[in-house]
Design a protein around this nucleic acid. Structure first.
Length: 462
RNA sequence: GCGGGCGUAGCCAAGUGGUUAAGGCAGUGGUUUGUGGUACCACCAUUCGUGGGUUCAAGUCCCAUCGUCCGCCCCA
């Protein structure tokens, strides 16, 4: 034992994702909420391995090697199969979309399309870690993937899902910002930028608007070749603000003026359909808006894009984002498979919610009742009473050791257990117990026979 | 990859060349043993990431090394 105490047992950079029990319980709760909502919309769970073949992860359409975390076996003996393989031939998944593409290709014949799946696995990034930016983190993703085509209503369903999740977990007001990349691409086409590569570049510049500011964006656009007036035109366009109706009217108006970009017209029509769907899904109108500046740096998005921010906490950044992509998921199956999906970066979100006190803390244990130990001779009774309550659906912690009552209460208090049951010689005689509510100090005599009902009743009141 | 900062207990730290290494939080024990959260008392670093050097003297200066953090880039 001694010899290891000097080793550095701190977590390696970027892997500092451990949570103390109260925090981990909160994460479990969030996962439960998210899973429940995903399943309510018919999404089915999928899990893929942490490791994929490197060439899969490097397949076109992804974000490049700089974010991939490679793995190698430590031992490379000649008998080791791994060592015969090329070094770095395997790597950890950096998102769930590329693995989804591979999953679909592997199980094409077993899946029903449109395939709606959710996945809440850990993913890994090889890039430099920073605060709130991890090398391992949990992403909660949903995607719907069609063969050849995918109904635009799936795009409308995403904001409904986001709204339901974030309304359920009580973290304050939020706003789902919706845009369509075809509109952005179209506006560039309308001013004479027609090369796809250039448009992508410009859109990436636009994406930095809220981070670096208007002046810098204008400067960057011009640096890439736009004229002064073109830059202003673009910035004016993406900065147009208003209600959903006002922006749609503005876009319709704009569409009549633009006759050199089909893309623009398509984008406006898609956005219109998405908004119509959202209205029919009865997403509360104060939960979503159109934001023409939303671009999503990732260039695989081709249509609808989403970002969700917390009102008054915009600095936290997007807490849930995603969009529609045409050519990402079918790459291995060799088929056109349009998809639409969103992702919640749960590890980062939870950290920020905790750091900013935006979410109520939970207790350090799921136990609702602690059965205290007053004398070892009664341990049989304690176990019996504990079981009785567990059978009644109550989470119970039993104190096995005969330690001072004060210490037991202190322990229960620290764990955040709301109710303690005290059974000593006196209570034993009368087949009763003392039910102590820790928060108030209130103490009630309860018959063992009615215990389950009484405790359940009290738990509801607290 | 380039540039900069920082490493003192589980955590947050004071200390900027003189030797008993402040303080706070957390933790442990106690305030007469069947009642916690408050209060009070006590305990809690032979040692300052590691190795070497300078000096009568080093947590403090120098070198190396490891770790870590920030900015550029990119994203959850």
């Amino acid at each position: 034992m001694e010899q290891y105490k000097d080793l550095n047992y701190n977590l390696p950079s970027g892997f500092d994702i451990e949570l103390i029990p109260s925090e981990k319980r909160l994460e479990s709760y969030l996962l439960d909420v998210i899973r429940t909502v995903f399943e309510r919309y018919g999404f089915t769970p999928v899990e893929t391995p942490a490791v994929e073949r490197l060439e899969i992860l490097q397949a076109k359409g992804n974000q490049g090697d700089n974010i991939i975390y490679g793995i190698n076996p430590i031992v490379s003996s000649s008998e080791d199969d791994e060592s015969k393989k090329e070094k770095n031939s395997r790597a950890l998944k950096f998102d769930q979309t590329v693995p989804l593409a591979a999953y679909i290709a592997r199980h094409l014949n077993d899946l029903v399309f449109p395939f709606a799946r959710y996945q809440m696995d850990m993913v890994f990034r090889g890039e430099r870690a920073k605060k709130g930016r991890y090398r391992q983190f949990r992403q909660c993703d949903i995607d719907v993937v069609g063969r050849q085509k995918l109904n635009i209503l799936y795009d409308a369903q995403m904001p409904a899902i986001i709204a339901e999740i974030f309304s359920t977990i009580n973290i304050g007001e939020f706003m789902i910002r919706i845009n369509n990349k075809k509109i952005l691409a179209g506006i560039f086409e309308s001013i004479g930028v027609n090369k796809e590569e250039e448009i992508k570049l410009y859109i990436q510049i636009i994406d930095t608007l809220d981070k670096v500011g208007k002046a810098k964006v204008k400067q960057n656009l011009q640096a890439q070749g736009l004229s002064d007036s073109q830059s202003l035109q673009i910035i004016d366009f993406i900065e147009f603000k208003g209600s959903v109706t006002e922006i749609l009217d503005f876009l319709q108006q704009k569409a009549t003026e633009i006759n050199n970009s089909d893309t623009f017209h398509k984008g406006v029509a898609e956005l219109q359909s998405v908004i119509n769907g959202i209205k029919e899904l009865k997403v509360p109108t104060d939960k979503y808006c159109i934001d023409l500046s939303i671009a999503r740096g990732l260039n695989y998005y081709t249509g609808t894009v989403y970002e969700t921010t917390l009102i008054n906490h915009e600095s936290i950044g997007s807490i849930c984002s995603g969009g529609r992509y045409e050519n990402l998921v079918g790459i291995f199956a060799g088929e056109k498979m349009p998809g639409v999906g969103i992702s919640i970066g749960l590890t980062r979100l939870l950290r920020k919610l905790l750091d900013n006190n935006l979410i109520d803390k939970m207790s350090a244990t799921p136990a609702q009742v602690m059965v205290l130990n007053l004398q070892q001779e009664l341990i049989g009774t304690y176990l019996e009473v504990s079981k009785k309550m567990r059978d009644g659906g109550i989470n119970v912690l039993t104190e096995f050791d005969d330690i001072k009552l004060g210490k037991q209460l202190k322990k229960a208090n620290k764990l955040g257990i709301p109710i303690c049951l005290i059974i000593g010689a006196e209570e034993y005689k009368t087949k009763s117990c003392k039910m102590k509510i820790l928060k108030t100090g209130e103490q009630l005599d309860v018959s063992i026979d009615n215990l389950v009902d009484e405790v359940n009743q009290k738990l509801l009141e607290i």
